[in-house]
């Protein structure tokens, strides 16, 4: 009885907090109508336009596509390069300063340069997204590869695996818990870079949609666009967590066990 109540109570609080915010918004919008405080139903209608109206193809789809391509490039490139760099123990110290320097450059600062090099193209936007999100993955993969158990590498050598096979069958899985932690950080950066890259010289995408709506004083559209970006982030994170839960099931069990052992 008590446990049931304690399970329901937080959910009830969460729902009522959300409701309170919505009610307060709506009350303010109705009693004091201004352009920057549109009523909820208007925002919701615009949001639905984005979800399955024409805007899905002109605003949401291009954004998601750029995000997925840029983010996938970052994950693949970061993981593979990181594993290789981390495994070359003598080489890593030479490369470290360069990587540490590059990762402190905010991807936003690279945007004008990317615009010069690639022009106002999808390639430029994808590049900026990938550049921004590659470093958490790259650094995590380097660290993960360096921490991989050397004895496992010995086992793989005894089993006659080539260097490339060792990297993919031993170092990569051993580093995967850290890589996934990097990927989660990378996703939020990719989302930021997606929006920013679409604020400059764009003619489609969510960033462009929000910017244009703001210039036309279509406040409800701006809010709907912002909500849509939040939705994309949430859905992608949920996908990622589900995938991670499956791939890293062994790690939770293993870590959980070693924790209880040490305790």
């Amino acid at each position: 009885m008590t446990s049931k109540r304690s399970n329901i109570a937080p959910l009830a609080w969460q729902v009522s907090t959300l409701l309170a915010v919505l009610v307060a918004w709506q009350w303010a919008a109705v009693t004091n109508p201004t352009t920057h405080l549109p009523p909820l139903q208007l925002i919701f209608t615009r949001y639905l336009d984005l979800l399955w109206g024409d805007l899905l193809w002109s605003a949401v789809a291009p954004s998601i596509l750029r995000l997925l391509i840029g983010f996938s490039i970052a994950v693949l490139f970061g993981a593979v390069l990181g594993i290789v760099i981390g495994s070359l123990r003598w080489f890593e110290p030479f490369l470290r300063p360069v990587i540490e320097y590059l990762r402190f450059i905010p991807a936003v600062a690279v945007l004008p340069a990317a615009l010069l090099v690639f022009g106002a193209t999808d390639t430029m936007r994808i590049f900026v997204i990938a550049f921004g999100s590659v470093f958490p993955v790259l650094l995590a993969a380097i660290d993960g590869a360096r921490r991989a158990e050397e004895l496992l590498t010995d086992v793989a050598r005894i089993c006659g695996l080539s260097t490339a096979e060792r990297l993919f069958r031993v170092t990569l899985p051993a580093a995967s818990p850290l890589i996934f932690a990097g990927i989660r950080i990378a996703l939020s950066i990719a989302l930021v870079m997606m929006v920013i890259s679409e604020l400059i010289a764009a003619d489609n995408g969510l960033g462009y949609y929000i910017l244009r709506s703001q210039r036309l004083f279509q406040t409800a559209n701006v809010y709907a666009g912002v909500l849509m970006i939040g939705t994309i982030g949430l859905v992608l994170t949920l996908f990622l967590l589900t995938f991670e839960k499956r791939v890293l099931a062994w790690h939770r069990g293993w870590r959980g066990l070693s924790n209880t052992k040490s305790a």
Binding site: D154, I158, C159, P173
Partner: peptide, 29 residues
């Protein structure tokens, strides 16, 4: 390391692949 030789190490919890089941660990080589 030649194929006619194999090793059992002292540290079993560091020499088995924690992401593979017992069956796949054995099949690894």
């Amino acid at each position: 390391p030649p194929s006619w030789l194999s090793i059992v190490f002292q540290d079993y919890n560091r020499s088995l692949f924690p992401w593979l089941t017992v069956r796949k660990n054995v099949a690894f080589g």
